[in-house]
Amino acid sequence: MGQILKVEDINVYYGSIHAIKGISFEVNEGEIVTLIGANGAGKSTTLNTVAGLLHSKTGSVHFCDEPIDKLACHQIVSRGIAMVPEGRRVFAHMTVQENLDMGAYSRKGDITKDLERVYEQFPRLKERRKQVAGTLSGGEQQMLAMGRALMSSPKLLMMDEPSMGLAPILVEQIFAIIKELHKAGTTILLVEQNAQAALSVADRGYVLETGKIVTSGTGAQLLASPAIKKAYLGG
């Protein structure tokens, strides 16, 4: 099981605000790793930096042993990192099918197999493939955002708050899908506010606080830790 993503000492600024203060972590092949923490801890900023939407002033990001921290976002995608962004961000005026086509934008060759696989995973999307994405429900849009990211057949799938704003039953469904993807061998980096749910599916987790990693451990260790319980799991 090799290391797929290695982040070393990144510092990210929004203007004069120092949002990420020297974060380092790694993700191994086949793992689910989660970043948890309160609002404003820097979880999304970290993912956006790996994806290339933001850039770090220091340190490095290595993906499959190659540095990617100087690359533009679209180049990183074609190396095999896909992200399901916070708030889903589906293309609301495009159809479900077109959204999935966009997911495969960086790929050459035939995509029908991947399309079939995504439709198999999310049968609801197949029913609505000619429908404009803006008319889908929140849960369906989240599935579309996940399906769209999977269309690039990524080596690493990053998800930013996939359960945000969804009814409890849908949250369960989303986490069931995450487990399935994991079983199928997809490496996942997951950012969640729902720490309980995230830690219960994760192999390992990192806890962020105001731009720094304060604790790390296996999912089970973090779930059992009294400090984590008190801070993030509500007692």
Partner: peptide
Amino acid sequence: EDKDAARLMG
């Protein structure tokens, strides 16, 4: 529609 989302598509 959404430049950042488009970037994430590659």
